[in-house]
Amino acid sequence: MTESRDPGLQPERTRLAWRRTTLSCTVVAVLAARQGLHDGRSPAGLLGGALSLLVWLAFLGLAHRRARELDTPRPRAAGLRYPASAALCVVALAAFAVAVVV
């Protein structure tokens, strides 16, 4: 196991890239929740905030699964599933943000 370790730590770096992205997603989700609570009088705001938190949970799960896959010396390339779902999460966050802002 240890002798086949990648000297460039590529899997490790990719895992950390997923963690950083999760962190960015968390910041956006917190902003969305803050917005939803702030103008809690509008049902659109509350709904947008709640859905944003769900998307954040989905992203957490996604990133966690990929991070587990990357925990081998020679991980497989990501299938399209991971990039597509991650991007979909971001688009969904933007869409809920539009619902909250307008």
Binding site: T14, A17, T21, V28, L31, P75, V90, L93
Partner: peptide
């Protein structure tokens, strides 16, 4: 596999850029 992982990291960097833009949209509003 290292090339694929590098491609994945580039994708994630773009995704963080996208998240920063979405966060900026929230920030302007708030």
């Amino acid at each position: 596999y290292r090339f694929s992982l590098a491609n994945e990291r580039t994708f994630l960097a773009w995704l963080r850029t996208a998240l920063a833009l979405v966060g900026g949209g929230f920030a302007v509003d708030q």
